[in-house]
């Protein structure tokens, strides 16, 4: 008695496995920075690209560091990241084929409402970082080797400081994605570095505010295609088509038509 339903089930499993949705459409795998996915940017461009080029973008959102690592394993057809040095290093390994700068957004320092004005006096973001250090304001760091984390380290160094020597009393490395880091820094009433796209689309702002907006150096996103000699399985043609489209006039218009709550966050280059 008991074995009959099991036999039926086994037939059912076989059918289900055979019917697993096969992917026929052209698609490329994008290794991306988290901020672009969290802000809803891909939901804005994917349908258009699908419509225009017939190519579906499958986006894996990890930090820039992780995205580059995954691309070194040939697990991605296109990189969309925002850390120039990491991208140039990637090109040097021979795995990258071509890097083109796509657009920029702004770097922001986020802090608790009552302390938000304390940084505005500074005319350089590195000075603001030095102020945070000298007053030992609480600061939450991504600590995950993402594009934002790399930028943060660079800014500490620009201010003449070494974040590895910071006391954990005020400098906290959470080792998480951008959203999780914002959640923690808001709960801890601390400062943190983020980008405008993430911040404008973030829903759990609490009483945190923009404490500093960097008007001098921008957060530049770029597209890197993968070298098909190193990774023969890469869909180079499709990813080049996507790059050509996004850097074309129409692609730029598409980027600047993206807004979050009426605020334009990405500016094409």
């Amino acid at each position: 008695m008991i074995f009959k339903p099991i036999t039926k089930l086994s037939i059912l499993i076989t059918i289900v496995i055979i019917c697993l949705p096969p992917v026929f459409a052209k698609s490329i795998l994008v290794q991306s920075s988290t901020s672009l996915k969290n802000s809803g940017f891909y939901q804005h461009i994917i349908p258009v690209i699908k419509n225009e080029l017939g190519i579906d973008l499958h986006v894996v959102a990890v930090g820039t560091g992780q995205a580059v690592k995954n691309a070194l394993n040939c697990d991605g057809d296109l990189l969309i990241t925002h850390a120039k040095e990491a991208e140039l290093d990637f090109l040097k390994t021979g795995f990258g084929s071509k890097r083109s700068e796509l657009m920029y957004s702004h770097w922001l320092i986020i802090g608790p409402e009552d302390m938000a004005n304390s940084l505005t006096v500074k005319n350089d973001i590195a000075d603001a970082f030095y102020l945070i250090f000298s007053r030992k304001y609480k600061f939450v760091s991504r600590g995950d080797n993402s594009g934002t984390h790399m930028r943060e380290i660079k800014l500490w160094e620009k201010a003449g400081l070494n974040p590895r020597k910071f006391s954990t009393n005020w400098y906290m490395e959470v080792g998480s994605g951008q959203g999780a880091t914002l959640n923690s820094s808001i709960q801890l009433e601390a400062f943190t570095l983020t980008d405008s796209a993430t911040w404008f689309s973030f829903q759990n702002k609490g009483n945190a505010q923009i404490a500093y907006k960097d008007e001098k150096n921008f957060n530049v996103y770029s597209l890197t295609t993968i070298n098909s000699k190193k990774c023969p399985n890469i869909k180079l043609n499709e990813s080049e088509e996507v790059v050509d489209f996004l850097t074309s006039k129409r692609g730029k218009a598409l980027i600047s038509s993206f807004s979050i709550n009426g605020e334009i966050v990405f500016f094409p280059l």
């Binding site: 969290n38 499958h58 829903q203």
Partner: peptide, 20 residues
């Protein structure tokens, strides 16, 4: 956690949390 391909309930929850 690819939209329309590998997004399931738990990964969607993780994504929404990271969006705040």
């Amino acid at each position: 956690n690819i939209d329309h391909l590998t997004r399931v309930m738990t990964t969607a929850i993780a994504l929404e949390t990271s969006k705040g």
